[in-house]
Amino acid sequence: MSIAPQLLRGPSLMAEILLSEAEKAFIHHGDDLRCDGRTRLDYRPIILETGLVSNASGSSRLRLANSDVLVGVKVELASPLSEKPLEGRLEFFVDCSANATPEFEGRGGEDLANEICRFLQMSYMSGDTINLSELSVLAGQQCWVLYVDILILECGGNLYDTVSLAVKSALYTTQIPSIKVATMDGDQPELELSEDPYDTKRLNTQNVPCLVTLMKIGNHYLVDPTPEEECCSSSGVVVAVSGSKKITAVRKIGSGSLHPESLVSMLKTASEVGAVVNKILMKKLLEEETAGKTQKVGFMR
């Protein structure tokens, strides 16, 4: 058995990792004990803070060990889609900052960004997740558009989970100004935006999905893989689990194959893990809100 380290690439084109055969063997055969001491269904420590960006209507920063994501939500008035005139819109935009790795300079991070963006859109498409009709202002003419902008600052494995948790927190804190429709006689009704900055409404984000990544290594699957574990596995699934334990989207990642039975059991595990994560996140967000206005720490540590 050669002992020279090999250069490996994870499934989502993240940074190259050098792993020796001994490390790979441990990751494959570790019996419910991972390199950092976690069990297979444990998450790494998460640091979350909301309300950092004052120019955005809602923002949050989530740090899952070494993965760092900053999300800003901006609300604007626009016309709704012609096939859904009674609903508002939710638009995602992911930007991989070159701070994470020099390969993301210019348009280098676009592939990864588009992948994450598309899967997020898919997971929010179900009517079960978020009630977009709350965002409608004037049926068929005006509605609120929520632009969710995600900035990836550091890649430390498990980007899908980090991004989804950050988006959920940002949407929880988003404040949409209240608007009154003063109908005028004739064609064009006028919209009056409330002058009071505190006169806002919030969205119900109870059912907003969280993404759970499960990687299959050997005969077992792990939650929240580190970059080394991502490189060692050949396949995995990313599951979008809503607050009501329903699965809204599934995607298989990696170049390996999955047996249908293992796929079913992975989905079951994912929905359970997702429900727990959702519950804990909502609890923490509520705690932060009731704690009142404290000095924002942000990136100052």
Binding site: G72, F93, D149
Partner: peptide, 8 residues
């Protein structure tokens, strides 16, 4: 590289 976040 100078980059401004879309929500900045």
């Amino acid at each position: 590289q100078y980059s401004t976040a879309t929500f900045s």
